[in-house]
Design a protein around this nucleic acid. Structure first.
Lengths: 136, 136
DNA sequence: CTGGGTGCAAAGTATTTGCATGAAC
DNA sequence: GTTCATGCAAATACTTTGCACCCAG
């Protein structure tokens, strides 16, 4: 992806285009999942005037627009990712890496005991274990 | 469950027994999933000298001993629960209620694409939707 | 031009830490 | 008696808010 693409994405969500926002989106796209702190530090290198408050405001705004998702993982800072096709996460307990994995959750949702009467709209799955690198 | 039982549980985990800890465990047992703030406020009613720092210290200690689990849910404060048989959570988007549900995740873990080489040790599933009460 | 975004500072909230006292074993 | 937990206060971390100024549309 490139700047042009990010600009179109923002337009499609009726979010005003600013250099700060483009930088935030570019990082999310590049890293897949990234924390507020890391966004701030990485952008600051090239863009020293950036304020933390701006990062928070933009993240909150983009979450309200369903343009990005929040990811809460035990033992890690909250991460943010661009919204895309539904997926689950593989989380390495050793190095902390997060990988996306695309699996069908229909069967899983159907397998819920029906007596509770709970109506499932969406499921979120995190797999914890060891990534390929950390197994050696 | 009762005091006697809680005391045995602490002993089994080699955690020193104090009234504060018994109160915290009793709340987790009673409510299933509870936040730091709620623990603090509920215990304070009967036990005004309790300090928030003590709640945090005990939660951290009990997590290290794998006596309790942390539960991170988007849109909610972190919750804590007593460790028990593996289970997933049903989370109501309207009222916020959290229910435990016991499902087998073996098939799910086997269904992961193998090319990533990720070795799964455990999976954590959250189902979001509407509880029985909130569907009406 | 005009509205919304930005940066800064301050406030608010959450969590951790150090230390003196006190309770558990 | 010794070890470790507690409570308090202070420190740190995280997040939000208000406001003056500035930029994108």
């Amino acid at each position: 992806m490139n700047l042009q693409k990010y600009m179109e994405m923002l337009k499609a969500h009726h979010i005003k285009i600013t250099p700060q926002r483009l930088a935030i989106i570019a990082l999310m796209d590049q890293y897949g999942h990234i924390s507020v702190r890391d966004i701030f530090e990485k952008i600051k290198e090239k863009f020293p005037s950036l304020s933390l408050a701006t990062v928070y405001k933009n993240i909150n705004a983009m979450m309200e627009n369903r343009f990005i998702n929040e990811l809460k993982i035990v033992g890690q800072d909250n991460k943010y990712e661009l919204v895309k096709e539904r997926h689950s996460h593989l989380i390495c307990r050793k190095c902390g890496e997060i990988e996306d994995v695309f699996i069908d959750t229909k069967d899983l949702e159907m397998s819920l005991p029906s007596e509770s009467g709970f109506l499932v709209e969406e499921s979120s799955i995190q797999f914890f274990g060891l990534c390929k690198k950390c197994q050696s």
